[in-house]
Nucleic acid binder design. Sequence first.
DNA 1: TGTCTATATTGACATTGATCGATCTCAGTG
DNA 2: CACTGAGATCGATCAATGTCAATATAGACA
Lengths: 115, 115
Amino acid sequence: MKDLPLLDCCSPLAREPLDDQRSAELARVFKALGDPVRLRILSIVAAHENGEACVCDLTAAFTLSQPTISHHLKVLKEVGLLTSERRASWVYYRLVPEALADLSALLAAPERVAR
Amino acid sequence: MKDLPLLDCCSPLAREPLDDQRSAELARVFKALGDPVRLRILSIVAAHENGEACVCDLTAAFTLSQPTISHHLKVLKEVGLLTSERRASWVYYRLVPEALADLSALLAAPERVAR
DNA sequence: TGTCTATATTGACATTGATCGATCTCAGTG
DNA sequence: CACTGAGATCGATCAATGTCAATATAGACA
């Protein structure tokens, strides 16, 4: 076993001082998550058969215009939360599990042992 | 032939369809996280001694004005990521671990078993 | 080639949001 | 009481963002 540094138990948020550059990168991703339509898009893609959904599936799930959905998909793709692949006439989107896992780990276990 | 609950293994994002109301609530929190200054504030609070920091600690860590820091703290508090307590002349902020844990769980384990 | 369908891009508009200086409130101290 | 310092609120400004209609692009098919 190791020498058990007490602070290493804590949230990554507490461990990494979050310098300017890293906080800017992370903020871009969280900002992409900070829209109800985009959250629902992620949810629909995640829940969809084979883990992927085409744009037509998504436009059908909202009352928003097709360009608006396309815009949101672009935002999610630009920050690395979604990937897309064109097959014939349709473009299929799917989650990037590592991206979500990274965010999850960052926010995980913020309870501290040393009081 | 639809007996095996393959989808139950997957991300909460995929399990819950994320209705309008829930996605709006979550979006508010993620939007609060979607700013580099606020992320650094959370990080500083988390890493600070006793898990709390006063506003003076935070203003000292940025080149931003005191009203701006106060504004960001208000945003983080309104979405439930921070709590505050006044002691004498100073106001101390600390994380709300459950709030972060909830978000972490939502984003966790999006890898699916069935391919 | 031309047409149809699916998706992306553009441009405009209204709204939101980050920031600051000025001001206000609150707590402690003469 | 007045004075001081910590922090919150207000009002204004400017940039960023969500949305749509119009248009462009790309593939399928006749």
